[in-house]
Design a protein around this nucleic acid. Structure first.
Lengths: 237, 237
DNA sequence: GAGCACCGCGAACAGTATGAACACAAGCGG
DNA sequence: CCGCTTGTGTTCATACTGTTCGCGGTGCTC
């Protein structure tokens, strides 16, 4: 049922200082149906220049910016703030390797429509762009009829975090495990401790911790010094 | 353990020119758990003054603005734009009777976290505030671990309307299910329990509970401790 | 009023997330 | 080096999940 999307493609400006990464992102954009690359900028200044050219009609319009947060001459957040101050309402998808909640809050307050953490694969990237395309199509019309339609537009921007987890694991339990590891005072837990904390069996706790270790979220470490076999502790990083 | 929300309430500034409506909105805010009214402004100037007082420490901080779009001296959109230009990252819920997609687009680009169309009842209002509270709690921590967590935070802001029901569901059955969940002593039911309660099949009970979970009315939680596959219980919030 | 298309519901079934039980491994003390 | 102690890692029964598909009711057409 993914309709072939006959309307004009969404024109994307890629802003990213690293040339190889910029090319990769541009290639990703081109691969997603309904999008086309409008340009690539490697600095904040270059991005602003391209946007001004576009807005003043010298180059075709730009609908969306794929904006790296860390730029040589500014940050994506500051760049975005100055856009808003100029009354430019262009939509922005933030791309960053920084894992700081303050950046997320700033991004939200500046009207960023999607937030992508580097590194990401094409599937994660395409999911964000497709969600934006749904939103873009919905608010294209001149009037909104009611609250439901507004809610539907907002809902289109939410992504389903469709990371497929291996057989035997549930999202619900995994979220609880991750929360427990994140909030543990020592930053590390054994399987038995986690089991007691979450009221799970040690077997189950171990299954999830092993999964987190395999995917690189936590790392294994021995805990020696006590009589008996040493415990394996799973340390967050 | 569903913690009873002990953290500090979210302080809300109500901005609305019509005095009666402003009072009504303030009363609504006070009724929602976890929120408190920080002040009422009837004009854009007054709002800015109150915000400045707050930011400069003369009055307690303000976390959230409930912002009417039509004001006597400016529009909520322009007010919001000047806030962003000043680097103020306060969160905003827009309230408006205007049904114009351009306003929605502007609102999104200015980082408005929720959008409410007047007139609205308390249920619709509370839904938006509760969604914001979820978001606020999620991004409160200093670091975000990964993409999934960011997605979850964004998803909290982007509620889908619970009013339109997908194929396969009946309004009447849905109402019965909601009533049963609301009146359940434990505040949580499994699909099988609901089925027994309403004399439905477990399949149907599950369909409706899943819908309620997707729209954020209830949340899923595992029920562990017994041998065998764990039950999924649906907990009202 | 008969035929027809649709749609919400549930019986049945395959799949799967969990924990009890158990065999084994690793450090420690004699 | 051998038992002792403590936690690891695995197997498997188990009970619930999630899905498929046919039934029966409702409304619409002719």
């Amino acid at each position: 049922m993914p309709e072939p999307h006959v309307s004009a493609p969404i024109r994307v400006l890629v802003v990213e200082d690293e040339p190889v990464t910029a090319e990769a992102h541009a290639a990703y954009v081109a691969r997603v149906d309904g999008f086309t690359v409008a340009g690539i900028a490697h600095t904040g200044h270059e991005a602003i220049r391209l946007l001004r050219d576009s807005r003043e009609g010298r180059t075709p319009p730009i609908d969306l910016i794929l904006l790296d947060v860390n730029l040589p001459d500014t940050t994506g957040i500051d760049l975005c703030r100055s856009l808003r101050a100029s009354g430019i309402e262009i939509d922005v998808i933030a791309v960053t390797a920084v894992r700081d909640a303050a950046v997320v809050r700033s991004a939200v307050s500046l009207g960023i429509v999607q937030y992508l953490i580097k590194p990401f694969n094409f599937a994660a990237f395409a999911e964000k762009l497709q969600a934006y395309r749904d939103y873009h199509g919905r608010v294209g019309s001149a009037v909104v009829t009611d609250q439901q339609e507004v809610d539907a537009s907002f809902a289109a921007l939410r992504t389903s975090s469709s990371a497929d987890l291996p057989k035997g694991l549930t999202r619900e339990t995994l979220d609880r495990v991750r929360a427990a590891v994140r909030d543990s005072p020592a930053g590390a837990m054994s399987a038995a401790e986690l089991a007691a904390e979450l009221d799970l069996s040690r077997v189950t706790a171990r299954r999830y911790l092993e999964h987190l270790a395999d995917t690189g979220i936590v790392e294994r470490a021995g805990r020696y010094g006590t009589p008996g076999r040493p415990e394996v502790e799973y340390r967050r990083r």
